[in-house]
């Protein structure tokens, strides 16, 4: 174990029991986050990025969801083998998570002060009064004006952006080493979005925490992340430093995602769509077909793609950083199949 890795996920597989059958929502995912850095996890809905995060936090919905294999080393300890009690002690103190829906993620019957103070009650066993005082300090830290007054307000009295700040304050309360942010800005207005992302960057600078940034927004990834892992149908299909991927995307899916960003100058003219879309939908994960799961939607797929799942090939680019690509097209350029996922 390298001490600078705060989180190392290896070959994680997470399954869900559904009435239709067993779903492997996360299938052999390997990721690394280094201390103080940000890993962006990119993918469309249902690709397994949130389930990966919930697996790390030990918050999989029970009894349907469970980790069936793999390991999650957090600060050198394998969370998969830890008791629920140990995980609970880590949640909210060493690692924290914020969610997509600020409108519904706060308890409506408690003041925001009480909800932030609870983190101190749970982890530092502070009495309520002291907890509230620290909640006030935390609110101040996340840039909320007049925290004295805010701590006595209820969630329904606050705007979406303000609620997400409260969520961040709650997550930051005990100074976690790792913050998992699951689409933290998706539900917000664009201007508020930028404020929230800025706030997270500032807090990272101040505290030196690591961030796992889950998003489907390439812009957010570009702004926030050092490394990027692109997920598709429960697997990591590409991972590398952000600039490497942005300069030379190796997987047809990543390429498709980048082409589907609207750019000024490109116009919809005479029925010819300038904005590329990826045809088709993500395949069902119950009894998936053999071969690459992106093959049915890939315009460069060939025979082998439909028969055999490609490993994660490791491309070495000029700068020497590792660049993993799960695609047969990358085979010729690869030095050897990467045994592990991307590292950040």
């Amino acid at each position: 174990m390298n001490s600078s890795k705060i989180l190392e996920i290896t070959e994680l597989t997470t399954c869900f029991d559904t009435p239709e059958g067993l779903v492997r929502a996360v299938d052999g995912v390997s990721l690394v986050i280094e201390s103080g850095r940000t890993l962006g996890v990119l993918g469309e809905s249902g690709c397994g990025k949130s389930v990966t995060a919930l697996s790390v936090m030990g918050l999989l919905p029970k009894p349907q969801g469970r980790i069936s294999s793999g390991s999650i080393y957090f600060q050198g300890k394998d969370l998969v083998r830890k008791s629920p009690r140990t995980l609970r002690a880590l949640r909210g103190s060493e690692m924290a998570m914020i969610f997509q829906e600020p409108m519904t993620s706060l308890n409506p019957v408690y003041t925001v002060g009480e909800q932030i103070a609870e983190a101190f009650t749970i982890h530092e066993h502070l009495p309520k009064k002291l907890g509230l005082q620290k909640a006030r300090e935390t609110l101040f830290q996340v840039g909320i004006p007049s925290p004295e007054q805010r701590i006595h307000e209820y969630p329904h009295q606050l705007s979406g952006g303000m609620r997400q700040r409260i969520m961040i304050a709650m997550a930051m309360a005990c100074r976690p080493k790792l913050l998992i942010a699951d689409e933290p800005s998706t539900a917000l207005d664009v201007t508020i979005q930028a404020q929230i992302l800025d706030l997270m960057l500032n807090l990272q600078e101040e505290t030196g925490m690591s961030i796992m940034m889950i998003t489907h927004d390439l812009g957010v990834v570009a702004e926030m992340s050092d490394h990027l892992a692109v997920m598709y149908a429960g697997k990591v299909v590409e991972c590398a430093p952000v600039d490497v991927i942005f300069n030379a995307p190796g997987h047809p899916y990543t390429l498709g995602l980048m082409r589907s960003i609207p750019r000024p100058g490109r116009k919809f003219s005479s029925g010819k769509q300038a904005l590329a879309e990826i045809p088709g939908i993500v395949p069902g994960l119950i009894d998936p077909p053999p071969g690459c799961l992106f093959a049915p939607r890939c315009d460069r797929a060939f025979e082998r793609c439909r028969l055999e799942m490609p490993p994660l090939f490791n491309l070495k680019d000029q700068s020497g950083s590792s660049h993993g690509v799960r695609c047969w097209l990358a085979e010729s350029m690869a030095q050897q199949p990467a045994t592990q996922g991307g590292r950040t």
């Binding site: 918050l59 609970r88 949640r91 909210g92 969610f99 829906e101 706060l106 019957v109 749970i122």
Partner: peptide, 25 residues
Amino acid sequence: QDYIRTARAKGAGEIRVFIVHAFKN
């Protein structure tokens, strides 16, 4: 509800989740 997940993410134990967060609602 989402806020129950938030409570768990905060490190709240099951009894706290059921009584403090869920039952009051």
